[in-house]
Design a protein around this nucleic acid. Structure first.
Length: 427
RNA sequence: GGAGAGGUGACAGAGCGGCCGAAUGUGGCGGUCUCGAAAACCGUUGGGCGCGCAAGCGUCCCGUGGGUUCAAAUCCCACCCUCUCCGCCA
């Protein structure tokens, strides 16, 4: 959420920022009109309330002294009705303002490359070499089925499309990846592990920006105020909703494993095969709460933390700096580490590292206090996948496949696999 | 799911419909005392919004949202959460 006072003071800056995101900011005029209306009502009604408070204590005094207060009572009846009318209008106006504010995207950071579509994202670095195969490599959905470690067909029967079972060594690899990543981020990168609820309520989903605009992307439980989390970002960021943190608390680094549930509304027909785009996947997520002045350094570090996972696994990747048009609703700045996926013949997003500045903090009301006695300020929040497990597994299968259809297990995972070096049929 | 109790400031804990943004205690901060510390004593100690260059003024906030009233932490309604007992259960 943007600061209404900031919008009021710099409407042009806001307009320009939104334009860079490809957002038609025509609604700003209406918003500013509502804002003026609100402040005008506020002035009037508060004046009336001041009168009411004053006269009410006068009435109290008269009653105490057993004197007649009839005329004042009558007078206040009128004032009271006026207040009620104003308050009602005020409520309506404020609801409308809030509604609009919650639908305005974050402004891009000045360093984000300006662009009009994802084609304008900028590759800023590349690591590792795409493997050269002297045989015909298979896509992971064929490799997995051949080895009997992934089962899409039965998942279709048991649940539906865009789900899969992992079996045997496939299931174990998934678990190994989760543990490896959690151990790496807690052990070497200084994150504290969180195991969050996999459902969150409406206030939380609003805090991180999924609601009100993107409710269609989430699964909602029927008759309950619960959403299946689309990412651990939701529960973990909302850990500190409506709290004021102390300087000694910051920065906070959390790493959380969660299953992620996405309806993938509107993506029918895309990536229909394989494990790349599914309704449920596992992810290890990094979340940071930091001082505003440090958040861009923190973003670089966060991105590096995600890249370290890929490097340790030996997976070739590149990092894209996301352009203004592709930043999405909440981010001011974003880097996407993308893994090489042989079956796609291109790099595929496997993480997404964002600085939201105070956009989420303002929605979720997460603040900190610099010194005793100073005003609370909003923290900056960041997050990034570290990494998406399902896509990592797919990338491992494809990049490390052997001519005989087996898959080499990256060395760092072997301790988590009971020493297994290669996935072969029957494991 | 059934029965009951309760949600007040950083915490603990009072609070007759008007004198309550709220007693008191603890903690925090500043000070006195002390070589220093402890103790004791004194003072101080929330957030949002609006107006204002500022000092400041006003207003709202006692789980949340409505309502009654000239006036609500205090009365009414709905919802949420916590605790105890019973039932069920991984």
């Amino acid at each position: 959420m943007l600061d209404l006072r900031m919008i009021r003071q710099n409407p042009e800056t806001v307009r320009e920022g939104l334009a860079k995101k490809g957002e038609d900011a025509g609604y700003l005029d209406e918003l500013l009109t509502l804002d003026e209306r609100r402040r005008s009502i506020l002035t009037d009604v508060e004046k009336l309330k001041a009168t009411r408070n004053q006269v009410s204590s006068e009435i109290a005094r008269l009653k105490r002294e057993k004197q007649d207060a009839q005329s004042l009572l009558k007078e206040m009846g009128v004032v009271s009705r006026q207040i009620k009318d104003f308050d009602e209008e005020l409520r309506t106006v404020e609801r409308e303002i809030q509604d609009q504010l919650l639908r305005i995207p974050n402004l891009p950071h000045e360093s984000a490359p300006v662009g009009t579509s994802e084609d304008d994202n900028v590759e800023i670095r590349r690591w590792g070499e795409a493997p050269k195969f002297d045989f015909e490599p298979l896509p992971h959905w064929e490799l997995g089925v051949n080895l009997d470690i992934v089962d899409f067909e039965r998942a279709g029967k048991v649940t539906g499309s865009r789900f899969y079972f992992l079996k045997g060594a496939g299931a174990r690899l998934e678990r190994a990846l989760i543990n490896f990543m959690l151990d790496l981020h807690t052990g070497e990168h200084g994150y504290r592990e969180i195991f969050p609820p996999f459902m969150a309520n409406q206030a939380s989903a609003t805090g991180t920006g999924q609601l009100p605009k993107f409710g269609e992307d989430m699964f909602k439980l029927e008759g309950l105020d619960y959403y299946l989390v689309p990412t651990a970002e939701v529960p973990v960021t909302n850990l500190y909703r409506d709290e004021i943190l102390g300087m000694e608390d910051l920065p906070i680094y959390h790493v959380a494993y969660s299953a992620c549930f996405r309806s993938e509304a509107g993506s029918a027909g895309r990536d229909t095969r394989g494990m790349v785009r599914v309704h449920q996947f596992n992810k290890v997520e990094l979340v940071k709460f930091v001082l505003p002045e440090t958040s861009y350094d923190e973003l670089e570090k966060l991105t590096n933390n995600a890249e370290t996972v890929l490097q340790k696994l030996g997976l070739p990747y590149r990092v894209s700096e996301i352009c203004t048009a592709d930043l999405g609703f909440t981010a001011a700045k974003k880097y996407d580490p993308e893994v090489w996926m042989p079956s796609y013949g291109r790099y595929v997003e496997i993480s997404s590292c964002s600085n939201f500045e105070d956009f989420q903090a303002r929605r979720a009301n997460i603040r900190f206090r610099r010194d005793k006695g100073s005003k609370p300020e909003f923290v900056h929040t960041l997050n990034g996948s570290g990494l998406a497990i399902g896509r990592t597994l797919a990338a491992i299968m494809e990049n490390f496949q052997q001519e005989d259809g087996s898959i080499l297990v990256p060395e760092v995972l072997r301790p988590y696999m009971g020493g297994v070096e290669r996935v072969t049929p029957g494991l």
